[in-house]
Design a protein around this nucleic acid. Structure first.
Lengths: 343, 343
DNA sequence: ATTTAGCACTCAAAACAAGAGAGTGCTAAC
DNA sequence: GTTAGCACTCTCTTGTTTTGAGTGCTAAAT
């Protein structure tokens, strides 16, 4: 329903605004190469585009600025074929020495993403629900203390130090660990608390006397929220954006960034693929004037994490989208390669 | 050299400014209870105090504001006996279930510190230099991959996933781990790279053939910077301070917060006890208009970490100092209790 | 039937002006 | 030594004017 000329004008306006952050007027537009029309003509078109809701004015006699609907249209229809970012190889370079360090990979990716865009990136670590117990070990550090270590089939390690119950013997401890390994091997993490409750407790009461209290730490070790973790990149970078020249906006942004559970919610709810939420399309008040791009990365085909980027609605969508695509692909690749052969 | 009256006036001015953040004039001061003098008298005293360098004016006819020298004097001489913050019990409540989770303790302490003050707190994790190797384990996850786990005598666990060298047999792997445990048990972390280089390498070449390349990951696992870690609390809280009403100041602050190595340097160089650095007493440019309080906490008597608090020079020194003292004592207590019996 | 030139009009932002208010320094009286 | 009084200074607020970019509309040109 938009004429070709309107399309071009819309595109040029948005492109210009994305990089200048200033409203643009008809006169300036008419000077652009791809718009061989007079200011007056463009004015008319702009008035139409405004009527259709793609543009806005900041005041009655100002230049035009893209509306959220404008950005939406831009993202959906005006972004060309993403020029291939041909894999930055950031992640690859981290794994090709044979070492696979999850935290490092994710953190590096988050930082790179922010560095390249000057927005703030957030990566949601994978949920470990489906990982299963590979081995449990308890290592005494002294007469009173020990550390318990749990390794999953995916190579994740959890550990917890604790004080030993009084009077426990090393043979008791060994027995205990044996029971645990016997019963818990292969159990997925999310079922752990349940299995411990139902199967292990009774066994332990049977074979070991007077150690009820010691069960606490076992439960604590394994009930531990296998919480998804957030990795931030360049929380400060976004401050370079002129949109953040206002102290209150900064405050509200950073206060949101500290409420990690809200952020997790924000990112979790993502289906596969890339999703762009512009301004008020976002649920959370604090980012109703920002845009949020999320992309998922998959591991092992099922579990997934999310890569996100937050910036002003005036975002370099073209660049960002192809970049996110690349990184998400790279992450998925690295994860796949690593997790593929783990049963 | 200061008269009693000047002392009181100085104190009142600083106290007032600390909580109002506004310059205070002679008239307002003369109305305070503990200053039964006329505005004119106080004006004279203030002029003297300014001449001595304890006060400043923001412009020729403004009220007075404490200078850095003023704050220094305040901190050194005018702060009364710290009312005992009688241990907030924050940390105790985390450990009395028998579980000792280092990260959790430190993170909680950092957050509490910031919460209670509305400044930003940073805690420098302990250096693990003196911890010694307790056990090394390598667990195969599949034919191609494994995870290596290192436990120290203090209960710290490091781990690293990696791809197995092609053609390594499980008996080779076992042999390898035996060698490692045999040679590395009891070796302090900071000596690890050296010992591996000198003792282990030759042994391995001797007993295992063709596995030179596999040494890479061993070295990588243990050479891993046992970097001290930073724990931040309330990076956003400091934004509530009126001093941070300026966007550029915020930018420079946050950009510093991201340069973690600089921060580590800043905190590392601390002798025992509490240290207050006011404004230009700080080395780093970005905080030359802020104050930094550092306190150390000790573990095992030797190694130590640092607790720090950053706020405007107009800081509630009285409250902060006693608070830092409490927390540092609590941390030291918890650590001591935990690490005492580990050889 | 488009496109364009011309012109009156609008509004934000910058520049300027006037007052008010808080505070000082100094002098002279207490 | 202390205080009252007063002239003076400087910021901050408020209101006014000017400027300039940009619009909408009408009428002419294509």
């Amino acid at each position: 329903m938009l004429t070709d000329r309107q399309l071009i004008i819309l595109q040029v306006i948005i492109d210009d605004f994305i990089d200048s952050a200033k409203p643009i007027g008809s006169r300036a537009l008419s000077k652009k190469d791809n718009l061989p029309y007079s200011a007056a003509t463009i004015r008319n078109e702009m008035a139409d585009l405004e009527e259709l809701g793609f543009l806005e004015k900041t005041h009655t006699s100002s230049g035009r600025v893209p509306s959220e609907k404008g950005y939406r249209y831009y993202v959906d229809h005006l972004i060309g074929p993403e020029r291939n970012h041909h894999g930055l190889g950031i992640i690859e370079s981290l794994t090709n020495n044979g070492i696979f360090e999850f935290e490092q990979i994710v953190q590096t990716a988050a930082e790179a993403l922010s560095q390249l865009t000057n927005y703030t990136s957030i990566i949601l670590g994978p949920e470990m629900f489906e990982a299963t117990v590979k081995q449990i070990q308890v290592l005494a550090l002294s007469n009173q203390s020990a550390v318990a270590i749990l390794v999953t089939n995916t190579g994740h390690v959890e550990h917890r130090s604790f004080t030993l119950p009084k009077g426990i013997s090393s043979s008791d401890l060994e027995k205990l660990v044996n029971i645990l390994n016997d019963r818990l091997h292969g159990v997925p993490l999310f079922k752990l608390p349940e299995v411990i409750q139902n199967e292990v407790t009774s066994l332990m009461v049977k074979y070991m006397n007077g150690l009820d209290s010691s069960l606490n730490w076992i439960r604590a070790l394994f009930t531990h929220e296998h919480a998804v973790k957030l990795y931030f990149g360049g929380k400060a970078n976004i401050l370079m954006q002129p949109e953040f020249n206002d102290v209150d906006r900064i405050r509200s942004f950073y206060s949101l960034m500290e409420r990690e559970d809200e952020i997790v919610d924000l990112l979790k709810n993502t289906n596969q693929g890339i999703k762009v939420s512009i301004g008020h399309e976002n649920e959370v008040d604090e980012i109703k004037d920002l845009s949020l791009i999320t992309a998922s990365y998959h591991i092992g085909g099922g579990q997934l994490g999310t890569i996100a980027l937050i910036g002003p609605t005036r975002m370099e969508y073209k660049k960002v989208l192809s970049l996110m695509q690349s990184i998400s692909k790279e992450m998925t690749g690295a994860m796949d390669k690593w997790y593929r052969d783990k049963s």
